[in-house]
Design a protein around this nucleic acid. Structure first.
Ligand SMILES: [Mn+2]
Ligand SMILES: [Mn+2]
Ligand SMILES: [Zn+2]
Ligand SMILES: [Zn+2]
Lengths: 143, 143
DNA sequence: TACTAATTTGCAATAATGTTGCAAAAAAAA
DNA sequence: TTTTTTTTGCAACATTATTGCAAATTAGTA
């Protein structure tokens, strides 16, 4: 059985050294289709790595444009894979984020752009984020 | 000179005991037109009250519907006065929030509703939040 | 006003989350 | 294999927030 090297490719493409922790954490994102918190990563990676290593790995992924921060309403720090053409120093994350109040999963709706809004006179917008909560596809269909 | 009792009225109307800290903190919100963080309150109230008292006061105001939490992109906890008909246990805060990247002030755009968005099949929306960053009215006009 | 009951406050302890410096370990290059 | 560079783990520290409890304050009643 040949194991995939998609993770290695992504690390190499971004000029990062290939290390155990980076591979494991990146694979969590590749396998789980949704946003992950630091605590999730500690849990799913069986506490193999030091907290600080996890923080630093996420920070590195952020800087390289491998993941982006997900806006939240409850002050949690969430990370999700960038699926567009984010590069070092600049993210292109203007999609809507959805959080399910049933399963608590936060998803990137990568194909739904944040809509334009007409602001009061004098306000100049530069960036917009949108968070929609409700019941997700999976939870709705499993009823 | 007769000092206003708007703050006392609000506290009474919400069935809260009238105390020094509650009056001072509520007046900060009434005078400052924007969102405040816990640290702002400690600063502007001249550190008169214990941190814990400030936390508990904000929590009480939240529960009564006197203030609402403001969504942020940088995981800061911000509070702003409810200007609509929020009541104990239920907020009606579906307006857009604007954060100025110049003066850093966060404003409630109370008259701008969060727009509807067409979601992928299967997602059922219950609530939506929107945060727009850019240059605010004051900063733009003072150039 | 004085008294009483209920609520609120301040303090100390504790928790959760995140950051920094530095030596040891690991990865990449030579 | 050896050397150089990067990454990791650990300890210490910082910030933000929560809890229990006794003292102080508020509101209602006599
Ligand atoms: Mn996203
Ligand atoms: Mn608001
Ligand atoms: Zn769900
Ligand atoms: Zn401004």
């Amino acid at each position: 059985m040949s194991s995939s090297t998609a993770d290695i490719d992504i690390l190499r493409k971004n000029g990062l050294h290939v290390t155990d922790s980076r591979r494991v954490i990146l694979n969590l994102f590749l396998k789980y289709d949704g946003a992950l918190a630091h605590a999730d990563i500690e849990k799913y990676s069986s506490s193999l790595y030091d907290r600080v290593t996890v923080y630093r790995t996420l920070q590195t992924f952020l800087e390289k444009g491998i993941v982006h921060l997900v806006p939240t309403v409850d002050n949690a720090t969430l990370y999700a894979l960038c699926k567009h053409n984010c590069i070092e120093g600049h993210h292109y994350d203007n999609h809507v984020h959805f959080i399910c109040s049933h399963c608590n999963k936060t998803s990137c709706l990568d194909d739904i752009d944040v809509p334009e809004v007409k602001l009061p006179r004098g306000f100049r917008p530069l960036h917009a984020a949108m968070i929609i909560s409700g019941i997700c596809k999976m939870c709705k269909s499993s009823n």
